[in-house]
Nucleic acid binder design. Structure first.
Length: 841
DNA sequence: AGCACGCCGACT
DNA sequence: GTCGGCGTGCTC
């Protein structure tokens, strides 16, 4: 009997063995990558076939092998060469393999059984009478049942556990009032089809190849088909015209009916007469929505671009594993290097994968690749609907799309033979997934390149300290592009100390220098950009009498004032309060907004320069891709004088018209408890300053800060990455932080604050004893301590940091912990392991 | 995750 | 006494 190794989409630590599905002959095999339905306990869940199962499976003393119940798709959903990649990830991030695969696949492919309860005909008449006899939890449930007539598992799973409900359901089932069935929660993605209209063969012969002249075409119609109605003649003329425009191909039926609403019936008749042919063809939903901006190929490469491509070339022609860091200043023309490297690889019949940080629904890089590669390109990002995502996946797995661009999850794209992987803006924290499988897209890109034996190109103007260190030790090759294209100079940066008598307008957040620079720019009719680190109007509300800060009821964080919505909003859970409130601590009415946010800056700018056209871009205004693109377009067409925005505008956007960039409060991020705070601040400042002067006029930057002498600020002012790196490297080495050590963050959370603490301390004790016993002197245990944001969504969070030189010993500790987990973390305390944490919050 | 089993306090 | 809540362990 054939058996298979199957990873189930459930938190089961091991893979399981299942037998041959019914309906398949003994010689037939279920291939790796197939998605199957299997029974797990008393449920049915999705499983992923990895290969043949254990030889001894099903022997006495072991377990009973259940058969695979069903194949869920006709074809595999991932190529089998990704299986070792998945296994490696499961081990490294301490995450169940089935869940890893579920994360890797496009959403909506996970099927499972759920109990569905239906009212029968009988029940519909008898139950309302019975209803009055019940009260309590069961009562609400009955009400819902009567209202909806159907209840699904999510509602019933919790209720069915309650014995009175259970008994009730049993009775009702016996009486024939309800039926309880297992139903599969299947989601089907219909392939999107469209009808295309062409001339039928016979008719095409009649009109001949040359139907380009209308009179001749109409003459043929008169002669051969005098019976045609007027609407039919008109329809044929239209098809002729459209075919001519499109170059002789079939025309989408929808296009014909759009142009001539009477064509619908006419087409039917014409098809019946054998004059036109209508074909259904599969089409892919267009993920771009409207056509993106077209970027032409440059006539000539810069000397730097040539040099970098020459260094890359040997690795592209005969691919082998090698990481590269492409360190190029903002505006140096990295994109063209990516494009030409990709072209080279595609010419060699291998595919290309490009990762971009998920920047606000769109990326200009995507438009560049689309301009160059058109239909060969597949995109995968969070802006796609489930159907679009599924389509893109199909295009990749079928080999139609040889080049894929997408956000971090695109690292799992089902390409069979990548010849190059590109990670743009490699330093971006957005590559780290912060829930579920906490992977880092950039790190996995490097791993995938290793498995695929191909080069991986990390590009950025501000390399992460870890990546740059790897070029120092020789693990990565360093490629540099220190100059902007067309000889543009880097902008002049001025640092303004917010601490000393900064302004003639102390009520505002603008220094005199920034105000006059904004005015000057207005007079020169040039655009300005103001960068703010926070969303909202003010970052928090404070009582002027007692100093109390208004916090969220469920998360221990201050609420943010959103003036346009007249609300105080929690940015963690969405909880909100009205803006008019008395101090919860002292009942004073003097509770006012403090700090700053993009909304407040926008308003102050309007006050300062009333005739300026001001636009704001943050995650509140860029709610949809369209909205975002609209604002971008307005900026490009110079319909905006001053653009106010958050992180979103700092990254990767190219605004040729902007000559002044103002950073309102540069050191706001230096206060957060994270060893990477300086790195983040430097990167942000360097990226923001890079937005200035990317057109014909030189740029100017004004950085307002309370810490003008901080090295993050000073190095950004000098555009000096290497000075920053040297300083930071020294600090990291002294404190033994990455890249001089590895970290694992063990996170504990529970609604019960005492239990989390107790559990965290128990685990801390256990780990300390273990390293003492095993003499693991190189491993350090920090904490446990409450997380910087202690309470989020009604859960208290603690954390414990493992720090060590060798990842192996850290992993061993994690395994030992997993074995002992249940004894130390009973009940409602959830423990999650964050390997290589990116944020400690 | 779900689902079952088994252990214990608080009610008819 | 058992009812109903919760903690523990398993799933091929």
């Amino acid at each position: 009997m054939k058996t298979y190794e199957v990873a189930v989409a459930a938190p089961v630590p091991k893979t399981l063995t299942y037998g041959q599905p019914p309906g398949l002959g003994p010689e037939e095999t279920v291939g790796p990558g197939m998605r199957v339905l299997v029974s797990l306990g008393r449920r049915k869940v999705t499983g992923y076939v990895l290969g043949p199962g254990e030889e001894s499976a099903g022997q006495e003393g072991g377990f009973a092998v259940k058969p695979i119940l069903e194949l869920l798709d006709p074809e595999p959903v991932f190529p089998d060469l990704l299986i070792p990649f998945y296994r490696w990830i499961a081990e490294y991030y301490h995450f169940p393999l089935g869940e890893v695969i579920r994360t890797a696949l496009p959403a909506g492919l996970t099927t499972g059984s759920r109990k569905v309860i239906r009212l029968t005909e009988q029940g519909r008449t008898h139950l309302p009478a019975a209803d009055s006899r019940f009260s309590g939890a069961g009562f609400e449930w009955i009400q819902a049942l009567l209202a909806k007539e159907v209840l699904t598992a999510s509602v019933t799973a919790t209720l069915r556990r309650k014995p009175p409900v259970q008994r009730l359901l049993g009775k009702w089932q016996e009486s024939g009032w309800i039926s309880i069935e297992d139903e599969l929660g299947r989601k089907h993605f219909q392939d999107k089809k469209q009808s295309f209209v062409g001339f039928a063969q016979e008719f095409a012969d009649q009109v001949g190849k040359d139907y380009s002249r209308e009179e001749e075409f109409l003459a043929v119609l008169d002669k051969r088909h005098p019976e045609l109605k007027k609407s039919e003649r008109k329809t044929l003329s239209l098809i002729r015209e459209l075919r001519l425009q499109a170059g002789g191909v079939s025309i989408p039926r929808s296009e014909i009916t759009r142009r001539y609403s009477g064509a619908g019936k006419a087409l039917k008749n014409l098809e019946g007469r054998g004059i036109v042919s209508v074909q259904e063809r599969r089409v892919y939903r267009d993920p771009f929505g409207e056509a993106p901006h077209y970027f032409p190929r440059p006539a000539q490469l810069t000397a730097e671009q040539e040099a970098v491509l020459a260094d890359l070339m040997p690795f592209l022609q005969i691919p082998s594993f090698q990481p590269f860091l492409l360190h190029g200043v903002t505006g140096c023309g990295k994109t063209e290097v990516y494009l030409q490297a990709a072209e080279q690889v595609l010419a060699g019949e291998r595919s290309v994968l490009i990762l971009v940080p998920e920047i606000a629904l769109s990326s200009q890089l995507e438009a560049h690749f689309y301009s160059r590669f058109g239909d060969m390109l597949a995109v995968l990002h969070s802006g796609l609907s489930a159907g679009e995502r599924h389509d893109q996946w199909q295009r990749i797995i079928s080999g139609q799309a040889g080049i894929v661009i997408g956000a971090r999850s695109a690292v799992f794209a089902p390409l069979t033979s990548p010849g190059l992987i590109i990670v743009d803006e490699e330093h971006e924290p957005a590559y780290k997934q912060e829930d579920g499988l906490r992977y880092n897209g950039r790190d996995l890109a490097i791993l995938r390149a290793r498995f695929a034996a191909c080069p991986v190109l990390l590009g950025t103007a501000t390399p992460s300290v870890t990546t740059y260190r790897n070029t120092r030790t020789g693990k990565y090759k360093l490629l540099e592009m220190p100059n902007r294209i067309q000889g543009q100079s880097l902008p002049e940066v001025q640092v303004v100390d917010l601490g000393v008598g900064r302004s003639s307008r102390p009520d505002l957040l603008f220094s005199d220098q920034l105000i006059s620079a904004l005015w000057e720019n207005m007079e020169k009719r040039q655009q300005s950009l103001l960068f703010v680190n926070r969303r909202g109007f003010a970052s928090f509300m404070m009582c002027r009498d007692c100093g109390h800060i208004v916090q969220c009821r469920h998360c221990q964080v201050s609420l943010t004032l959103h003036r346009s919505r007249q609300k105080l909003v929690c940015h963690y859970c969405g909880f909100s309060l009205p803006t008019r409130l008395v101090c919860p601590a002292c009942s004073s009415a003097k509770v006012e907004g403090m700090g700053l946010g993009s909304e407040r800056i926008e308003e102050e700018v309007r006050q300062l320069i009333p005739h300026a056209r001001v636009a704001r871009m943050d995650s509140d205004t860029a709610t949809s891709r369209n909205q975002y693109l609209k604002t971008l377009r307005a900026v490009h067409q110079h319909e905006v004088d001053i653009l106010v925005g958050t992180q979103m505008i700092a990254k990767g956007l190219h605004f040729p018209g902007i000559t002044l960039v103002g950073v309102v409060w540069a050191d706001s991020g230096l206060g957060i408890p994270d060893f990477r705070a300086s790195e983040r601040t430097f990167q942000l400042l360097a990226q923001v300053t890079g937005r200035a002067g990317r057109g014909e006029h030189p740029g100017r930057v004004i950085i307002q800060t309370y810490q003008p002498h901080h090295y993050s600020v000073q190095c950004a002012r000098m555009h000096d990455y290497s000075a920053f790196y040297k300083r930071e490297e020294t600090l990291r080495r002294e404190l033994q932080y990455p890249p001089f050590s590895r970290l694992v963050n063990i996170r504990f959370s529970s609604p019960d604050e005492h239990r989390v603490r107790e559990c965290a301390e128990k685990v801390g004790g256990f780990l300390r004893r273990t390293i003492a016993r095993q003499g693991m002197t190189e491993v350090e245990i920090l904490g446990p301590a409450p997380a910087p944001l202690v309470r989020i969504k009604d859960r208290t969070r603690w954390q414990l940091l493992l720090k060590g030189r060798h990842p192996k010993s850290l992993h061993n500790l994690c395994y030992l912990l997993a074995e002992q987990n249940k004894e130390m973390c009973p009940g409602k305390v959830t423990l999650s392991i964050d390997v290589d944490p990116e944020s400690m919050m």
